[in-house]
Design a binder for these strands. Structure first.
Lengths: 225, 225
DNA sequence: GTTATAAGTGTAAATAGAACACTAACAATA
DNA sequence: TATTGTTAGTGTTCTATTTACACTTATAAC
């Protein structure tokens, strides 16, 4: 097939999704980048993503690209913003619907993707140079994430089904980059009535074991306040 | 020009913007609809909007379409969400980047647009049937708007440069569809340090005249709290 | 001057948020 | 088995914010 196949009366931009996949590793907020195998920015780091198929919902495209390029599936995914400056891609006009996704720290095993793309985690505050306007996208995702911590139950998306209060507090502290008072944090989160003790505890070292909690409505991200 | 001019190696969706233009009229939250002159949904009501030009920023497209179809310009405009279900337009795959816009009640004179499109204001809670998924878009815009009242200075975008505290309170009450206590509202807004009295007052009927206020940073929408 | 109408004003009680330091339980090891 | 190091766990006081609540003031119309 050697001719340009898809023709329209009016010019059409290309539409892609780009995904900012966050996790918490090594006490840091990290995000996943893939190494570009083709120009432009060949060899550089970029957000995972790709072109939207004609019969494919945009969110499905984001899920598919994420799985194809990183092996990651079943994560919390939310539309972030649509980036469409005319020159953001040097090849042609490309409008990108950006999503952000969160994955619990116990599921970050990257099965190298089917097409053997190189993928790696980077600390959010030590990102390398990124292709296209991907830094802007990553920053906007971080902003949204930090804001949503306050008024939604999004923090649980970073944790396994069962977690300790210290781990939960750590999610808030890491993303907001500030220390919180332990007693006040516990009072606050327990008053929200979102989590309950499982009765189990975790022995983790040479110190007092921690109670394990779980969310009352697992999997849901809800607006609180 | 009779042949399909724009050809690509891969299929491209069409990209449009749709704009939810809100105002307050007659004590109600209203939005602007235009009557469609072409199929599909010919003769039906729809949000203003149209196709993104290849060299045009998406927000610029929203501004242009709004002005072309309604004569309205220089309004507060914010990207809302991107809608792209594969079947949302029966003609071809169309991905729409939705915006919402706010216009003060003293500027809602609709100069009938250049292309003589019929446009009209409708109360948000008495909308007619809308074309495509435009009802979903309108509802999402209303949600965002109501949420932003709480934590931003967006309410001022509905008011003229000078306004009374009762008018400002009315913005909050109308959009949130609930009554607020007058004393508490005034305490709250004045404590935010966003507005100041101009020293002028408005005589408006057979009752005590109201002080006129203005915002300290006109034109800006800021996050407060 | 009486009336109708919207503007304007304060206080007390309840709730939420911030500051702050010690005890409890365990594992390792001396 | 006593000691040490480490993280988990817990209350109270003070301050700020939010809520509930009713009367007086200034004007225009009559």
């Amino acid at each position: 097939m050697n001719t340009k196949q898809y023709c329209y009366w009016h010019p059409h931009p290309a539409v892609t999704t780009d995904i900012v996949l966050f996790t918490l590793r090594e006490e840091k907020l990290q995000l996943l980048l893939i190494r570009r195998r083709n120009p432009p920015f060949q060899g550089g780091w970029a957000l995972p993503g790709g072109f939207v198929d004609l019969d494919e919902d945009i969110a499905d495209c984001a899920k598919r690209e994420l799985e194809e390029e990183t092996g990651v599936k079943n994560v919390y995914l939310e539309q972030l913003y649509t980036f469409g400056k005319p020159q953001r891609d040097p090849r042609e006009r490309v409008i990108s619907v950006a999503y952000y996704a969160l994955i619990p720290s116990d599921r970050i095993t990257l099965k190298p993707a089917s097409d053997a793309t190189e993928a790696a985690w980077f600390a959010f505050d030590e990102l390398p140079e990124l292709a296209f306007d991907h830094r802007e996208i990553a920053e906007k995702a971080h902003e949204r994430l930090a804001a949503k911590l306050d008024y939604s139950t999004i923090a649980f998306q970073f944790l396994p089904k069962q977690f300790t209060l210290s781990e939960l507090q750590n999610v808030y502290e890491t993303i907001r980059a500030e220390a919180l008072d332990k007693r006040n944090f516990r009072k606050w989160i327990l008053a929200r009535n979102l989590i309950e003790a499982t009765g189990l505890e975790r022995r983790n070292g040479s110190h007092r074991p921690a109670q394990l909690f779980h969310t009352k409505r697992p999997g849901r991200v809800e607006i609180i306040r």
